[in-house]
Design a protein around this nucleic acid. Structure first.
Length: 359
DNA sequence: GACGCGTGGCC
DNA sequence: TGGCCAAGCGT
């Protein structure tokens, strides 16, 4: 374990020198504006740089300051976020933008402790903003940093358990540079991201291969230790895309379920795959669709994978004649094609509408 | 503490 | 191919 002060100084020196030589010139590293740093950190949660970068640029164009984001409608924020996943990030970010404007006059709090009280900011993100924007010496420990520390120092406790987190936090606290915490944190993260990578790291060029526990015992692939994740559940979704006079019936998802805040179609869930709408349990809306509409089955069965759900999705396109009146459940409304385009939708719904040449 | 939350890229 | 997982957080 690292406890000796001189060892820490040596580690920091090597790390910083590696960083200055090897780091990528990412956009959000060219600023100390807490708004831009915050935006980048939220986008990058559980998200690869390549996937998040276009969203970072879009968001800064549309909402250059926290005031612009606070002024926006949540629906538009979600629409801009569409395709990035974990949509609560966008909802929380919007909520927090409004709070920063209304309670702090648009100025971000400057310490990790205060920042972490905001919605969507946990230990990691609060520490990242506090150190990158305000140079506070707090360790920002993300998945990369857990991996680096567990391998180099041979920490085998579960990084997802509270006990494990405490142990990692202790080591991180001993390591962090008091003089330049921003660069130290960036360097640890970047080192994990491009050198100490999860699979098949190239340890022969690693500046720490002389002290690394994992390299010495050839256990890079066993570290870090993470509790195993749960099994994927199968769900069977039957969507009815109700069209009348060119408009589509869509509903906002408001339940405690997937895709909260996004829009989809009239949905009947079943416990297994069904061949035809008649196999679904009776339901007034469904009966009305069968009576008044022309139902066309979309031939393809879509499989959509979420982190812990496998969705088996069957679509039916239902055309209702313009002179028919249809009673829809209270949360479903007809939207024009232009409106449908501007609504935030799960990527599956967006894909279907494009494949059906509606959008 | 356990679990839920998206999407796309990788092999 | 399908299993794995990427700069976490909220409940």
């Amino acid at each position: 374990m690292i406890s000796d002060h001189l060892q820490v100084i040596d580690f920091n020196k090597k790390l910083k020198s590696w960083y200055l030589k090897n780091h990528r010139p990412l956009l959000w590293r060219q600023t100390t504006d807490p708004y831009k740093i915050w935006l980048s950190e939220i986008i990058l949660q559980q998200t690869r740089v390549a996937q998040g970068t276009p969203y970072y640029e879009k968001f800064l164009e549309n909402y250059p300051t926290v005031f612009d984001l606070a002024d926006a409608d949540e629906r538009d924020v979600l629409r801009l976020w569409q395709g990035l996943g974990y949509y609560s990030r966008a909802r929380n970010m919007h909520f927090t933008a409004r709070q920063i404007v209304s309670e702090f006059g648009g100025k971000f709090p400057e310490t990790a402790v205060t920042l972490s009280k905001l919605k969507g900011l946990g230990h990691y993100t609060a520490a990242a903003i506090a150190s990158f924007a305000f140079n506070e010496p707090v360790a920002a420990i993300d998945g990369n940093v857990y991996r680096v520390m567990s391998r180099i120092f041979g920490i085998r406790s579960d990084m997802l358990s509270n006990e494990g987190k405490k142990e990692f936090a202790k080591v991180a606290k001993a390591l962090i540079s008091q003089e330049d915490p921003a660069t130290y944190n960036q360097a640890m993260i970047e080192f994990g991201a491009i050198q100490c990578v999860p699979v098949s790291p190239n340890c022969t060029i690693c500046p720490f291969n002389d002290i690394c526990y994992a390299y010495a015992y050839n256990v890079q692939n066993e570290l870090p230790v993470k509790a195993k994740k749960l099994k994927v559940k199968n769900r069977f979704l039957n969507y009815f895309i109700i069209e009348q006079g060119g408009k589509l019936a869509m509903q906002e998802r408001n339940t405690k379920d997937i895709w909260k805040g996004l829009y989809d179609f009239f949905l009947v869930e079943s416990t297994a795959r069904v061949e035809s709408p008649e196999d679904l349990t009776d339901n007034d809306t469904l009966l009305a669709l069968q009576r008044k509409g022309n139902i066309r089955q979309i031939p393809k069965l879509y499989i959509h994978l979420l982190t812990h759900q496998k969705l088996h999705v069957q679509f039916w396109w239902v055309t209702i004649p313009e002179n028919e009146h249809l009673d829809l459940p209270g949360n479903i409304y007809f939207f024009s094609k232009n409106e449908v385009e501007t609504l935030p939708k799960p990527i599956l719904i967006d894909t279907l509408l494009k494949e059906e040449k509606y959008l």
